[in-house]
Design a protein around this nucleic acid. Sequence first.
DNA 1: ACAAAAGTGTTCCTCTTACACCCATGA
DNA 2: TCATGGGTGTAAGAGGAACACTTTTGT
Lengths: 249, 249
Amino acid sequence: MTTVETSSAISVDCAVFGFDGTKLKALLIKRKYTTDDLSADDLKLPGSMILENETLQGAASRVLEESTGLRDIFLKQTSIFSDPDRVSDKEMDWICRYHGIKTRRVVTVGYYALVKLTDGIINYTLKMGARWVDVDDICHLAMDHLDILSDALSVLRKEMIYSPVAFELLPKRFTMRQLQNLFIAVLGVEIDDRNFRKKIFSTGILKPTGEKEKNVSHKPAEYYTFNRSEFRKLENSRNKLGFIGNWSY
Amino acid sequence: MTTVETSSAISVDCAVFGFDGTKLKALLIKRKYTTDDLSADDLKLPGSMILENETLQGAASRVLEESTGLRDIFLKQTSIFSDPDRVSDKEMDWICRYHGIKTRRVVTVGYYALVKLTDGIINYTLKMGARWVDVDDICHLAMDHLDILSDALSVLRKEMIYSPVAFELLPKRFTMRQLQNLFIAVLGVEIDDRNFRKKIFSTGILKPTGEKEKNVSHKPAEYYTFNRSEFRKLENSRNKLGFIGNWSY
DNA sequence: ACAAAAGTGTTCCTCTTACACCCATGA
DNA sequence: TCATGGGTGTAAGAGGAACACTTTTGT
């Protein structure tokens, strides 16, 4: 039996996703404190150490509110990053200085959040010195934040297929095309227009608003809303357990 | 910006599952140190604090090896349990004494492991004072370990449907009936014999051994093995991305 | 009138489901 | 010979995939 005293700092880092109608974006912030060794212009995910009386979920919510001004947004845990060497010594110095703590090790818990992008939020995040960057264009981040982001993205992909998280990324009213573009952007696949509409409508979770696009130089598209209560009903009548061994992939 | 010094002990707890041909079992251990307040006969999941230079996965592997004598078994992270009040003060005393540490808070990371039950392992675990208990019969565990176990079970259920983890729980050679019973036990559903065989065979991931049961008072069943390389092939040719919006549940 | 995106149906095919009887063995 | 579980086929229905043209609007 091992009885070594061992304790670690625990942080959360949030991959915050938004969708601009065409591209999937992630919220990145500039590191505020830089030293000679660490370049001033690299980006990181919003994150924080957890406070004494906080759950991890609570810490992640707080981070989200600090960086976007939003409460009650979709937020879910992904993985934990616990490699003892996940941050270099230099990075460790930075972290201790930035957070005003002293520790030899930081274990971080990844979260992913989904945000409905509006002008208000974009302005707010800009004011906070944050940026919404196309996920496809992100090839480097501070520390292991690219790993955390990639992991979050892969979780998002899975969830998009099996649960209606898509609607967390769309405005209240949206067109079929926006919904379809979202699937295309996140999953990176081509989707047939007709089959897509058929499939979505067959679930009955979309409610037509009767309103249409205006000032578009083509046939205006109808706006829909997500019928969450209808979805709940479907969810409860889940008799789809014949799905034994979908191992075709 | 909050700059409170904060650090926590991090532990791992492992839900270790085994299958005896009919029932799904979990490995439980008795708490070794008891006090006046804590009853001596409650059970917990195998677990440990993480050591200084260990990843979480490493700590979980170590726990598994300590409690089963096995290395290289299936092991995967589930969730993190970080409620500041997840263990009572009394429990906290026990933990500090048991692990020889001093801390105000323990965050624990859940893992689930899958073990091929053999006489060897059952004997080993018995010698270690551990027991294999029907998961259906477990209604109380120390601390929040029942939550951790339930969470692990729900992850196992999902994984059983979408990936071939079933074979981690079966001996190298197994009959169709064993495989089917495993699905029934884990998923809690009825499964039609003929459709099940058809589905499994159609994937091509089972290799007949030509060998049959002996000394059974009925037509002897054939033994099969899991064709992992064939599965890898299937896995790589995953062109099943038409699965858009399986929200029928 | 033209450019641009919205909206709409049908056919083919695969996969899922439901269902009942004979076979091989040990007792 | 009987009890026990192993092993097999088919038909009907649902859901997925592929595919092309007309409609509405702004310019």
